[in-house]
Design a protein around this nucleic acid. Sequence first.
DNA 1: CCCGGAAATTGATGTCGGTCAATTGTGTCG
DNA 2: CGACACAATTGACCGACATCAATTTCCGGG
Lengths: 257, 257
Amino acid sequence: MSDNSSDKVISISRLRQACRNCSLRDLCLPMGLSNEDLQRLEGLVGSRGPLRRGDHLFREGDGFHAIYAVRYGALKTYTIDDEGREHVLGFHMAGELAGLDAIYPAEHACSAQALQATSVCAVPFARLESLARDISGLQIHLLRVLSKELGATAHLAADHTAEQRLAGFLYSLSRRLGLRGYSERELHLFMPRRDIASHLRLATETVSRLLARFQQQGLIKVSRKHIELLDPEALRHLGGAMAGAGPEAAERCRGDL
Amino acid sequence: MSDNSSDKVISISRLRQACRNCSLRDLCLPMGLSNEDLQRLEGLVGSRGPLRRGDHLFREGDGFHAIYAVRYGALKTYTIDDEGREHVLGFHMAGELAGLDAIYPAEHACSAQALQATSVCAVPFARLESLARDISGLQIHLLRVLSKELGATAHLAADHTAEQRLAGFLYSLSRRLGLRGYSERELHLFMPRRDIASHLRLATETVSRLLARFQQQGLIKVSRKHIELLDPEALRHLGGAMAGAGPEAAERCRGDL
DNA sequence: CCCGGAAATTGATGTCGGTCAATTGTGTCG
DNA sequence: CGACACAATTGACCGACATCAATTTCCGGG
């Protein structure tokens, strides 16, 4: 099921206490849960990890047992097509959920791999489902998260130019990092160019050329994986429909929680 | 909110009896609901329609109040981008749901327009949500439907060639019609070429050219909106990843219920 | 510290599909 | 029935991006 030696969900008591104190609580859980409800939820949550770079959290075809919330680190999800080429579906950073696309059919439709040292909370779905019936707000939260992802993917399907897609990607990545307390101006790309390209359906060469062009235009400053946004507004504008409808749309476009 | 003169949800008693006898029941509802549960659900369901071709069921930006199941006819959902160009997100035929992407944020992210005379069941979401807590299977059904759509859109985002996309589209359309009791060999395209093109992110000219090519290759027989599949297997194969992983994946790729 | 290999960049060339334009076919309404 | 507006087809051309190929840069390990 995974690269990990221990593929069962480990519950370390230290970690089970997490939800109530977790700084990411408002990202992966519905707002305003009572302390009591949080406690019941904690009873379910195990942890998995730490995963090292390259380790898989789950693989395409694995049975679906849990949904995952990233504690720290970052994941990419991807599929392999008939010709053996990898397609990156998305990136998941701290506070974001992964595995939701496997609720039906009950097996994962993509693989999830750590891009760096990463740890996740694992919530067994069978029990989450029954808990959702009891805790007001949890059911609707799940539906909302799914619905939001759906809206985001829809926009992603629109046929933008390479320039629009990359500008939108950089801008929305900046917003997501900002939500998590990182700088919105100085990005650290935790994924290789190849993955960005695959995600945006471009060739790596095109990503490279566009980054160079953006830099030459004074929009960004590129140094390997370190990117400084000199003119975020221009990027947002370039991103067009993708990030055009204000910050909220930008967030929606990345499946934030 | 809509083109209809009566934009409130009309409950005609004849129609409220529908669910228990509805031939589409197994498409839009979870399997195996008890007669009692069906009755409770019927209490919520109103109807809207009939809509004439061109009428809108809802428009982008409308408040979200209900999810809709198509009784007969067909809808397309679409958005308008910054440059005023229309992007068709999907087609919804009898037994399929629409409006799920609006659960969050609580307004519709796309417009839904009738492609022909169409009638829908409208289920007020607020009440559906509370009912889902009571009726075992309804909650998980909703989650599954959403999850399935999510998986479908993900595949749709992959960068296939124009040929692959159109072949996959024809094949999956055939499967969907088959599920509803129509012939899988003889399709009636209930949407104009322009909408097919927009949905597949192609120019209408390209769709036209490809249909001509498929016909010349002996794969299909085209006559206006009437299309006969002479070699469905070849189409499925051409469709590649989109319809390649067996019939189930083909269904998933169209958001069937 | 240096080396091997992958990642990233840069350049040259090809091609798929979009755009523009002209023509034909068709459902609809006076 | 005839005319009009729109849908569909077909052809010519072009541009954005992929592909192929050659360096260069950088990071991790001995």
